[in-house]
Simulated scan of single mutants.
Amino acid sequence: MSEEPEKKPIFYDRWAFRYLAIACLALIACAIGAIFYNHHPKPLKENRFAKRDIHAGSSRAILTLASGKKISLDEAPNGVLAEESGASIVRTGSGQITYAVHEKALNSDTVKNAGINSLETPLGGQYQVRLPDGTKVWLNAASKLTYPASFDPGAERKVELKGEAYFEIAQIANTPFVVFSGKQRIEVEAARLNISSYVNDEAIKTTLLEGMGRINSDNIIKSGQQAINKKGNLEIIPANTKEAVAWKNELFLFEDESLETIMKSISRWYNVEIIYANENAPKELFSLSVSRFDNISSTLKSLENTGFVRFKIKGRKITVLR
Results as ranks from 00 to 15, higher is better:
A61N: 11
E120K: 15
S67V: 12
G57I: 12
V129Y: 02
I62T: 11
I89D: 09
F49C: 02
G95P: 13
L81C: 09
A114C: 11
G115W: 13
L106Q: 09
A61S: 14
Y37H: 07
F36I: 13
A34W: 11
L119R: 07
T64H: 14
N38G: 10
G115Y: 12
D109N: 09
A100Q: 04
C30V: 12
R18L: 08
V90R: 07
S85L: 05
Q128R: 11
T64F: 12
A82M: 07
G93T: 04
A61E: 11
I10T: 02
P77V: 04
T121S: 05
S94F: 06
K70T: 15
Y37P: 03
D74V: 11
E84T: 14
P43T: 08
Y127Q: 08
I89C: 08
R14W: 04
L27Y: 03
F11E: 08
I22G: 05
R14Q: 10
T92G: 10
Y99K: 04
I22Y: 10
N107Q: 03
Y12Q: 12
N38L: 13
K8E: 03
S58K: 12
L119G: 09
I35G: 01
G33T: 04
K70H: 13
R52Q: 10
Q128S: 06
V111Y: 01
T98A: 10
G68R: 15
T121C: 05
A61F: 10
I89T: 11
A56R: 11
V80D: 12
T92Q: 10
T64R: 15
D53G: 07
L73A: 06
S118E: 11
S108P: 09
A29P: 06
E75W: 01
